[in-house]
């Protein structure tokens, strides 16, 4: 019985930490859906947002003001990215766009650390970080709060996409660029909007990760975990990002606990990728992704 409880504990811990991967993957999916750009810089945007937030906070501003300032910075960033990079790269192959986002990642990483320094910033948002006994199972309270934040964010995004004009425009662009243009949706504005939303998601992700790990460079590496999440869930699906995150979180923890001792540990880094590769072999479009159709 104890083994079952232990298994459940690992599973639940994994699922909860998986929601954090979902959070980062969500930002990827938003941009990919609206512009077909695989935004490698999403992880760095998370770091950049968290650094800016902490930086403003340390200047003595209250948390709410810091959040507003950071959000404004992310919107400016969205404008700059659209105006100076992607407007000039229409009709380029996707691979070139992808590499431009790698360049953007380097740029933001350097910029963030030039302005705010490299030391680890402690970020305390008052989220309790204690174990919580649910019956015989120990669950991290922090992870529960984080999961709740993710759920709230996804619900909010869902409402935004379904009811607001901008949300509908975003969905229209995601479905078909040219059709959206032909009915008068301003493509450039939509791109700015979607990068801003992705910036907002990055801010939330940065706050949650930052208060868990401290705001430091390694946060941007979380992006590397979000890539298999997207593959498993599908590049174009928001529910896919959530489910993919849960699968990756749970499976990597289970693998680490049950397989790790046999092979010397450290499985977490590559296990999600192997899983993603297996999914690709069976379902190249991911669990919830749109079927990939090719025309000659």
């Amino acid at each position: 019985m104890d083994e079952l409880y232990f298994f459940l504990e690992v599973l639940i811990g994994g699922l909860l930490s998986g929601t954090l991967y979902s959070l980062v993957a969500l930002g990827f999916v938003l941009i990919y859906k609206a512009s077909g750009i695989f935004n490698f810089a999403q992880g760095t945007m998370v770091l950049f947002a968290a650094l800016t937030f902490v930086g403003v906070l340390e200047l003595g501003a209250p948390a709410l003001l810091a959040a507003v300032v950071t959000l404004a910075v992310m919107v400016v960033l969205a404008f700059a990215v659209e105006r100076f990079i992607f407007r000039h790269m229409v009709n380029q192959p996707q691979v070139i766009l992808f590499m431009a986002t790698i360049g953007l990642a380097y740029f933001l990483e350097g910029l963030g650390q030039t302005i705010w320094g490299t030391e680890v910033h402690v970020l305390d948002l008052g989220i309790p970080d204690r174990g919580l006994w649910l019956g015989p199972i120990l669950v991290s309270q922090f992870d529960l709060v984080a999961a709740a934040v993710v759920a709230l964010l996804v619900a909010g995004l869902g409402v935004f996409f379904r009811t607001t004009t901008m949300g509908r425009a975003l969905r229209g662009v995601a479905d078909d660029h040219q059709a959206a243009l032909s009915i008068g949706i301003p493509l450039h504005h939509v791109w700015v909007a979607v990068w801003s939303v992705a910036g907002f998601v990055a801010l939330v992700a940065g706050l949650v990760w930052g208060s868990k790990l401290g705001v430091q460079f390694s946060i941007s590496l979380v992006a590397l975990k979000a890539i298999p999440v997207m593959i498993i869930g599908g590049f174009t699906s928001i529910p896919g990002a959530i489910v993919g995150g849960l699968i990756v979180g749970a499976s990597e923890k289970l693998a680490e606990v049950y397989l790790g001792p046999f092979v010397g540990g450290g499985l977490e880094n590559w296990f999600p990728y192997m899983l993603a590769m297996l999914v690709l072999m069976v379902r190249p479009e991911g669990i919830f992704g749109e079927k990939i159709i090719e025309r000659v």
């Binding site: 100076f84 990079i85 000039h88 790269m89 380029q92 070139i96 590499m99 431009a100 790698i102 360049g103 953007l104 990642a105 380097y106 740029f107 933001l108 990483e109 350097g110 910029l111 650390q113 030039t114 490299t118």
Partner: peptide, 20 residues
């Protein structure tokens, strides 16, 4: 070291925009 990252990233973007 950080500025190097900034310049590096900026140049890569510049290259891709100007001469892919």
């Amino acid at each position: 070291a950080h500025l190097e990252f900034v310049i590096f990233g900026g140049l890569i973007i510049l290259f891709l925009v100007v001469e892919p």
